[in-house]
Nucleic acid binder design. Sequence first.
DNA 1: TTTACATATGTTTATTTGTTCATATTATAA
DNA 2: TTATAATATGAACAAATAAACATATGTAAA
Lengths: 101, 101
Amino acid sequence: MEETYKEEAIYGLAELFKIFGDPTRIRILYVMLDTERCVNDIAGLLQMSQSSVSHQLRILKTSKLVKSRREGKSIFYSLDDEHVRSILNMGMEHIMEGAGK
Amino acid sequence: MEETYKEEAIYGLAELFKIFGDPTRIRILYVMLDTERCVNDIAGLLQMSQSSVSHQLRILKTSKLVKSRREGKSIFYSLDDEHVRSILNMGMEHIMEGAGK
DNA sequence: TTTACATATGTTTATTTGTTCATATTATAA
DNA sequence: TTATAATATGAACAAATAAACATATGTAAA
């Protein structure tokens, strides 16, 4: 093996990016870009079933891309980290540049 | 629809991150982090079959994460873009921070 | 030409995973 | 407590895909 980086980190990285690699989750992240949202609102905004949204939110939360806060019967989700925004922006830049070439 | 961003960009973004979402491809990108590599060398370094490496390189190239250059019988691949490095670093930072919490 | 080396590409298979449907949990109001 | 609203979760199914294998293409030397 010639690799200097940690093999473990490689898998962690791939796991992280895999989370971003689904349009549904990207859409969910985007509706939370500048405000927290509860599950029902997300489902309404994105025309998705409550179940599907909830499943995806669990994945996003497990990966620390999203955090949650309870308020009465509702649970509000928001981006967990500035890195999430950064990664989204970096990706968007790459997309846009590629389009201009 | 309440979304202001382009729906098209959402799918583009997800497609992009999906490419990063596989350990094999991350490993391939990492061995090209500071130098170009030919297919055989990558296969040797990562203990993968030539076929598998080639398949993945095609995916990486189609997504503009990697570019190639022919030299005799060999073809050298390298990162296409500074964004590729940025995205990898951003992801790594997120991973590392999460580990420290 | 042939031959050998480097890379690319079909095809099949096994695994992963997002969605749906049904049901469970949790919290508030009556 | 009972009813209702919001969210979570388990199971089944269909679609996507990485790896392996065989084979094809391309390049250079003999």
